[in-house]
Amino acid sequence: MPYRSLEPGKYGMHGTRASALAARRLDELADGVVSPVDTERGLAARLRYLTASTAGYTAMDTAGITATPRTLAAWLAEDRTPNRANLRRIDAAYRDLRRRNVARSLTRRLNNNGRGTRVELHPHDQSGVREPHRRAGVAGHRSVNVRRWDAIVRAWAAGDERTLDDEWTDEVLADLGSDWGGYEYATGVGFAA
């Protein structure tokens, strides 16, 4: 495993773990409310989503929101606005609940009845690396068809970055053959669902 025991940015290489870029893309696919949490519309939509189910109240508890029912009612009625810390917690609770709620649907769409989804990978940027230290054999962008998304989406929905990275390496990067290390850190990961 080429980069797991090395310092990837040591010689000037730039990139982000491909699994983290995949998590960002999954977040984009799962995102429901576009308005920021600090706008009236964004806050109202998140609070309605969170207070519509028992799971939403659990997500708020997990995020550390300790508002009384009276305070929650005032937030929902837009009579009061949460402080910045509670706004961050509300957004975190919303994203956590949204991830868990859309995971099954997202997995089904990405698995595409066994046909999978095409993933485009753009390798790390070596432009700042001096020639003797450059990784040889890293081509431009590569595409791979990923047929099994269950474990990847499950790890993403749970917020388990380490398991997500392991699953991404096993299900996606392994299909690149011996060149997989050039894509462990990437400048872009793209796929649709």
Rank of each mutant, 00 (worst) to 15 (best):
V138Y: 07
Y49A: 13
G116S: 06
G188N: 08
T54Q: 13
R95D: 03
A192R: 14
D96Q: 12
G137K: 10
T66H: 12
R147H: 15
A151H: 05
L106H: 04
I90A: 09
A151T: 08
R104I: 09
R115C: 03
S53M: 05
T169Q: 13
A63F: 06
R115K: 15
V119N: 06
L72E: 01
P8G: 04
R25I: 01
A52I: 00
T71Q: 14
T54H: 11
N101V: 02
H124P: 00
Y57I: 00
T68A: 13
P8M: 09
V119M: 12
N83V: 01
D27K: 01
T58K: 14
R88W: 00
W75M: 05
W149T: 10
R130A: 15
A174I: 09
V153L: 09
D179A: 15
G128K: 07
S127N: 11
K10W: 06
A59G: 03
L29T: 00
G190K: 06
R24I: 03
A55S: 08
P8N: 02
R70T: 14
A44E: 11
T54C: 00
R24Y: 07
P132T: 08
D170F: 04
T107M: 07
A155E: 11
R108H: 11
S53Q: 07
Y185S: 03
T187E: 13
G15S: 10
P82W: 05
A18H: 01
A157Q: 05
W156H: 11
R148K: 15
A20G: 03
A174S: 15
R48Y: 10
A44F: 10
R46T: 06
A74L: 12
R70M: 04
E161P: 00
L26Y: 08
R147K: 15
D61Q: 12
L121P: 02
A55I: 00
T54K: 12
L50Q: 04
R142V: 14
A158D: 15
L72G: 00
R17Q: 09
Y57F: 14
N111L: 03
T16K: 08
V189K: 06
R70I: 07
V144N: 12
V172T: 14
T58V: 15
P82N: 02
D170T: 07
E171L: 08
G137S: 08
R98P: 02
A93E: 05
R88P: 00
Y11R: 12
V119I: 14
D175R: 15
E120I: 10
D31A: 13
R89D: 02
L47C: 07
V172I: 12
L47D: 09
D165A: 15
T81N: 00
P69I: 02
W180M: 13
A20P: 00
P82R: 05
A59I: 03
V33G: 03
L164I: 09
N113V: 06
E28H: 08
I90S: 04
Y11M: 14
D61C: 02
I152D: 04
R147A: 14
D160A: 09
A45C: 03
T16R: 11
